[in-house]
Nucleic acid binder design. Structure first.
Lengths: 166, 166
DNA sequence: TATTGTTATACTCTATAACTATA
DNA sequence: TATAGTTATAGAGTATAACAATA
């Protein structure tokens, strides 16, 4: 048997040769972080295109979804759940308020904090947004090969996220 | 039976109540893109901490890995494989060259292009880098629950990435 | 003293346009 | 005319420090 090119270490530049230098060096295909990153970019790309008409970015979507499901939470609480720094949350919330989708209300007990709510228009917007999201999500489920595959993926991602600190 | 709080629509702010407004609005837990993003950030966080001593960022790691495995490729080829715009690749490559890890050589046929190679120091660096990466990757595999779970995850991420255009 | 929201600011990543030298 | 590399620049997203009002 003749040695294959990887074993000889003879690299032909620009072709599918593998250098002898490559001992122990991973292929991009086996790097979890890399695959995760590329997949995330792909999904966000589809998301952004899906919402280009509504002019809604992923962070804004998640803020509206969180307020819709649990109105009255403080800025710090919403920001915290999403991993957004409270300083950066201000401009984000300003945008939603300027568009008339959400609003800050003076919290009853604590005069420092604001409680966040959707406006009536924001409620209607959130419904439409959810329909657009459902179509986007369905495209992903189709790519994955069905709901079971999606559940498996979500469970695996949870394993990475759970515990947080070992 | 008494109606639960979701059915009454009476939301108690800041608690685990679910507003009646929430009809059809997804939980963050069921959003593929969101989970993917959080998991990717977590993995990159671990990666960045793992390489803080070597002062190596994810993009630099992948460029070195690609050059190590297939020396002699042009800048545009390496950048293209990683989804990096060739304009942004310049500064990245400048950094690796300044540190003496990789170098641009005049391509033989085409005087416009550079062929990329590791320096001898770059080869040694890539070996150390791969060992650090392996430890990082092993941490992830442990979290996932073993090599089979990792393989499943990578296969699912490939389903999202494959085809690219429907 | 500590916390909530806020402003200002800086740094990284990414995207686009335009230039040069070659092809 | 097109391509490889480059420069300049602008826009997101994210991180930190410091401040005012309130706890």
């Amino acid at each position: 048997m003749t040695k294959n090119i990887a074993e000889t270490g003879v690299a032909r530049p620009g072709q599918d040769a593998v250098s002898v230098v490559a001992q122990g060096i991973p292929t991009m295909n086996e790097i979890i972080g890399y695959k995760l990153r590329r997949a995330q970019l792909f999904v966000f790309q589809d998301f952004i295109e899906s919402f280009s008409k509504m002019k809604l970015r992923p962070a804004e979507f998640s803020v509206l979804a969180l307020i819709a499901r649990t109105p009255g939470q403080k800025q710090t609480e919403i920001a915290g759940q999403l991993g957004i720094k409270r300083a950066n949350f201000v401009a984000l919330m300003d945008g939603l308020e300027r568009r008339g989708l959400a609003e800050r209300r003076k919290a009853v007990g604590d005069k420092r904090s604001h409680s966040l709510h959707l406006t009536p228009e924001g409620v209607r917007f959130a419904q439409k947004m959810s329909a657009v999201w459902a179509a986007h999500e369905q495209r992903l489920v189709d790519r994955l090969g069905g709901p079971e595959a999606r559940d498996t993926l979500l469970a695996l991602l949870d394993r990475i996220l759970d515990l947080k600190e070992t």
